[in-house]
């Protein structure tokens, strides 16, 4: 370092030494002045690390076969699996939803008694387990009934199966309440199709475009006076890609 450099670097020192004090205003009453977000505040986008629960390809194809009859592709939009509902439910099942973190999953368990008490079927198994055993049972049922894998069945056979399942007329074994499984899959297909894309489904906001939902917007003052008019609002996702 020559003299010129020494002076120069001292100068840089001077340029950078505007002291920023960190004393809180007493008027803030100890409310932190920082408003930046930390990890705990942030949503957790569905990962892209591949399937974590639905690792079996047959099970995945079978679930897609069910989902795509519940929400088939048509002129209004893509099918459930095309819109990412399999990725969505896999991500959910890998997390707190799948483990039933918010559910009471301990005994005693007397299905009839508790169904009566609670007005609906109760489960000790977590949603993750219900999916895994349910999808296995689906495949077994298809093998036994039609001697083929479930996802290779025709649309009409799957429709017939789902209709009977919804009516409680399908026996998938002692351990499985098939009507409840149908309802679970229907609910999750809808959620995947309509939840924010951050959760893995509703790709390209296809579900929102289908129903005309404008997405994660904060404020509608610009539009509130405009009645009986198609506002053609572009949907907006929580983490916009454009």
């Amino acid at each position: 370092m020559n003299r010129r450099k020494a002076i120069f670097s001292l100068g840089t020192l001077a340029a950078s030494w505007v002291a920023v004090p960190g004393l809180l205003a007493k008027e803030l009453h100890k409310v932190p002045s920082e408003t930046r977000m930390n990890e705990d505040h942030l949503p957790k986008p569905a990962g892209r690390q591949g399937y974590r629960v639905l690792t079996d390809e047959i099970a995945r194809k079978n679930l897609a076969a069910v989902f795509d009859r519940l929400i088939p592709a048509d002129e209004w939009g893509p099918s459930a699996s095309e819109a990412g509902c399999i990725e969505f439910i896999d991500n959910e099942l890998a997390g707190d939803y799948g483990s039933g973190a918010a559910l009471y999953l301990s005994g005693p368990f007397d299905p009839d008694n508790e169904k009566k008490m609670m007005g609906g079927p109760q489960f000790i198994s977590s949603p993750r387990e219900r999916y895994l055993t349910g999808l296995k049972a689906l495949e077994t049922w298809a093998r036994n009934t039609w001697n083929s894998s479930f996802h290779t069945l025709s649309d009409s056979r799957i429709d017939e199966f789902l209709t009977n399942m919804e009516a409680g007329k399908i026996d998938l074994g002692k351990e499985i309440d098939s009507r409840a499984l149908f309802e679970l899959m229907l609910q999750n297909a809808r959620e995947g199709y309509l939840a924010d894309p951050i959760h893995g489904g509703n790709k390209n906001m296809a579900g929102w475009k289908m129903i005309g939902f404008p997405g994660a917007r904060y404020d509608y003052r610009l539009y509130i006076e405009r009645r009986n008019e198609n506002l053609n609002l572009v949907p907006v996702s929580l983490i916009p890609g454009d």
Binding site: N2, K5, A6, L10
Partner: peptide, 13 residues
């Protein structure tokens, strides 16, 4: 090798 120069710079200042 810079130490001498740094020291020199300081002395110069």
């Amino acid at each position: 090798t810079n130490w001498k120069h740094i020291a020199g710079g300081v002395v110069a200042l």
